[in-house]
Design a protein around this nucleic acid. Structure first.
Lengths: 146, 146
DNA sequence: CTACAGTCTACAGTGGCTGTAGAGGCAAGC
DNA sequence: GCTTGCCTCTACAGCCACTGTAGACTGTAG
């Protein structure tokens, strides 16, 4: 049961050292014990927690959701419907973004297909960008960052 | 041919006033003439340019690409293959993100489907987040912001 | 004249980290 | 013991593409 340094934790969970310290600073990871010289020393639980965070991030969960999930983890006797609902929300978000991206893809394809070479002044791609009507602003939301 | 204030330009191109000033600050929009009292006064060309930028942003083009496209617009006699290639690059990026999101969607669906209710301590969703193997880190890239 | 909307500048804040500087810590080889 | 070379520490700036805020000035409709 020997303690783990931040570098080892970083490798174990595949999260950068700086990111671990960042997570600590925003309270996502608790402050660990320190060695005499002030170095962070973690236990197995930290590896678990950090891996959990990383997996959730990989699945695109927003920080807030992850915070909630961690909160829920500390009360394992509760009904898991809250967990389910967070996951469903995330799925809904992903689907929404998928739809936006699909619309984008179609539009880009159309645009590119319409180009027949030639000079910039006559380029259909340029024309589309210039004259593009409201066909995308129907769904009036900008693509969200992930 | 009367000049347009920033507010009207904002409405005309559906871009926020602050964003217009931001675009000016990063050189995406040229500095316009000013009234005696210092207010920005735009012409029709600015509406065109700003709409162009907005449409390109809507299609997810990165700022750098938009900069290049604007550059190309100033030389309408050139071959438009450069334009085409920027658009194709963008399409490729969109497709890549689509693939990532689809993988995410599948994973989330699987995770949610495996949950049969009950308590957090036994929740399959939580378990998946905890034990999740390398099935997503195969594609070893974090989802990109847009 | 009085509201009130529009505009101005300058700067801080957002999220989720990443990068940098400069200093100190630790284990392995000589 | 001593050096080498990586690891860790703190604190702070920077990234992108904006958004928000504060406080002052301008323009216009009633």
């Amino acid at each position: 049961m020997k303690p783990i340094t931040i570098g080892r934790l970083s490798k174990a969970a595949d999260v950068k050292v700086t990111t671990i310290r960042y997570y600590e600073s925003i309270g996502l990871m608790g402050a660990p014990d320190r060695s005499e010289s002030g170095q962070r020393l973690y236990g197995e639980a930290a590896v678990q927690r950090l891996s959990f965070i990383r997996h959730a991030r990989d699945l695109g969960f927003p920080m807030e959701a992850i915070r909630d999930l961690i909160e829920l983890q500390t009360e394992p006797d509760q009904n898991c419907s809250a967990v389910d609902s967070i996951a469903r929300q995330q799925l809904a978000d992903v689907r929404k973004r998928l739809n936006q991206l699909e619309a984008l893809e179609a539009e880009l394809k159309r645009m590119i297909a319409s180009c027949e070479g030639g000079i910039v002044g006559n380029c259909r791609v340029m024309a589309t960008l210039n004259d593009h009507g409201e066909c995308l602003s129907d769904s009036h939301e900008r693509l969200q960052p992930m």
